[in-house]
């Protein structure tokens, strides 16, 4: 399946992401000594922790070329977020080999490190450094970040006075200004009002034009169709389809229908 995908890529770009037979399991505990007291009691009783290993990803082989926009689709719990987290090293693979060449921006969540008590302006610097934007660069882009967020004077007020949409705007304004070669985006585009969403999508288009590599997880199939040059379908941790977005989306719909019926 992965070979198919590779053949379809336009020649020229070099692989920036390579995964070879990658598997990832989570250990789910039914009974765990969560504290020392129980650990001692269980040791005395001779009880062991009980757990089950859940394979969230199984034998994934995938390579992404520079400049590609890869859409990742699949039902809930199919392993999409896990895949992104492996690529940005939040998680370590249990099997297989992963190679990522280039600076990675991880946009799994908006507003990491935000502190409600502090002003929007201060939170910009906090969030930017966490996403990998240096203070110097953040300062250089500050005006752009603030104007993108459209927060006006609110930028100097503590963010606990923001509406949830305003928080999202602030988070997005920072995220979109992070400088990187590879962007890993998980669901964060489905936020904000319609006009703001369009503005964000314009930014993604601009990134594409500048030749950035993007991996995009979304349940919004229309968006995948419109934005991605390629898509993959995950099902129960396995890569079941890889190719042109419309073909992969059709496959996804077909699988879902047969599941439902």
């Amino acid at each position: 399946m992965s070979n198919e995908g590779r053949q379809r890529n336009e020649p020229g770009g070099s692989d920036v992401i390579q995964m070879r037979s990658v598997s990832k399991k989570y250990r789910v505990y039914y009974e765990k000594s969560e504290n020392i007291k129980y650990l001692i009691i269980n040791l005395l009783k001779g009880k062991r922790d009980r757990y089950r290993d859940v394979w969230a990803l199984r034998d994934i082989t995938l390579s992404v070329k520079a400049g590609e926009t890869l859409g990742i689709i699949g039902e809930n719990g199919s392993g999409k977020s896990t895949l992104l987290k492996l690529l940005c090293r939040i998680l370590l693979a249990d099997e297989g080999h992963i190679e990522v060449n280039g600076k990675v921006a991880t946009l799994l969540e908006l507003g990491s490190g935000f502190s409600m008590e502090l002003s929007g302006r201060k939170n910009i610097f906090m969030n930017a450094s966490i996403l990998g934007l240096s203070r110097k660069e953040a300062r250089r882009r500050l005006d752009e970040i603030i104007s993108f967020s459209e927060l006006g004077d609110f930028i100097n007020a503590p963010i606990k006075s923001y509406s949830s949409g305003m928080l999202v705007r602030l988070g997005f304004a920072v995220a979109i200004n992070v400088e990187a070669d590879i962007f890993l985006i998980d669901e964060i585009l489905a936020v904000g009002d319609e006009r703001f969403q369009r503005k964000c999508l314009d930014r993604i288009r601009a990134m594409q034009r500048r030749g950035k590599t993007i991996a995009l997880v979304s349940h919004n199939l229309e968006m995948i169709q419109k934005f991605c040059s390629r898509a993959i379908l995950l099902s129960k941790g396995r890569l079941v389809a890889d190719g042109r977005p419309d073909a992969v989306i059709d496959e996804y719909r077909r699988v879902q229908r047969s599941d439902a019926g």
Binding site: T106, L108, E109, S112, G113, I130
Partner: peptide, 9 residues
């Protein structure tokens, strides 16, 4: 938890 689960550092 968000600094652990959602970002790499």
């Amino acid at each position: 938890p968000n600094l652990v689960r959602k970002v790499y550092m």
